[in-house]
Design a protein around this nucleic acid. Structure first.
Length: 203
DNA sequence: AGCACGATTAACT
DNA sequence: GTTAATCGTGCTC
């Protein structure tokens, strides 16, 4: 299968977030493919639009910090950050250099390497392996060492493939999850995308 | 140096 | 529905 090229990611985060649905996130783990269909995403910053829910806009008056600098870099790279003292979040950088655009991958449907996911999500049922951003990072063994990796490089251990067919007919849209004290209008703008009816969607 | 809080999850009542 | 876990980050003093 074809891995997505940098041109796919060099657009506004909302376009990328919507079109990533149904694509395959592939992680090479111990030389084996561990993968899942992307069924839920969220856009953070769209081109030049301000977004006070986005790390890149919120910190340091919208200028890069050690944590956020990858978001300001070239599209098609991984932005992986640590939160709540225990969880890793996997994002894809979109847009142009200088814009802090990213898409958070919030949920997958397991496809390949399921026994490895089961091992990484010990004693949990299959439906709870990848139905949340920190859960899928754990299932695919994604951590901070993935921050800044190029998803469009042939040698990377992680990438995204177009597998063509998407059985779900409807893309659902709604407000992003877990934004806490983010002010309006960003708290409510519908920048979350998911495949309607898919049982691996987080909420 | 100290502090509040987080793009969450799991385990409670 | 409520809350503990757990620590890096960025802001304030």
């Amino acid at each position: 299968m074809e891995r997505l090229e940098v041109t796919f990611f060099a657009r506004g985060a909302n376009s990328v977030a919507a079109e990533l649905l149904g694509k395959l996130l592939v992680r090479l783990l111990d030389g084996k493919r561990v993968s899942g269909r992307i069924v839920e995403t969220e856009a953070y910053c769209d081109a030049d639009e301000p977004d006070l829910a986005c790390h890149g806009d919120r910190a340091n008056n919208g200028l890069p910090t050690p944590r956020t600098e990858v978001m300001f870099g070239p599209p098609g790279h991984a932005y992986v950050y640590f939160t709540y003292g225990m969880h890793w979040m996997f994002n894809v950088v979109t847009g142009e250099v200088g814009q802090a655009n990213a898409v958070l991958i919030r949920a997958l449907e397991p496809v390949e390497g399921e026994h490895m996911m089961a091992n990484n999500r010990l004693n949990r049922p299959r439906e709870l392996w990848t139905n949340g951003p920190a859960k899928l990072a754990q299932a695919l063994a994604i951590n901070g060492s993935f921050n800044g990796l190029n998803l469009c490089n042939d040698r990377s251990l992680i990438w995204i493939e177009d597998i063509g067919h998407t059985p779900e007919r409807t893309i659902a849209i709604g407000p992003r999850i877990g934004l806490g004290k983010t002010p309006e209008p960003w708290l409510s703008i519908p920048w979350r995308y998911w495949l309607e009816g898919n049982k691996f969607v987080s909420i």
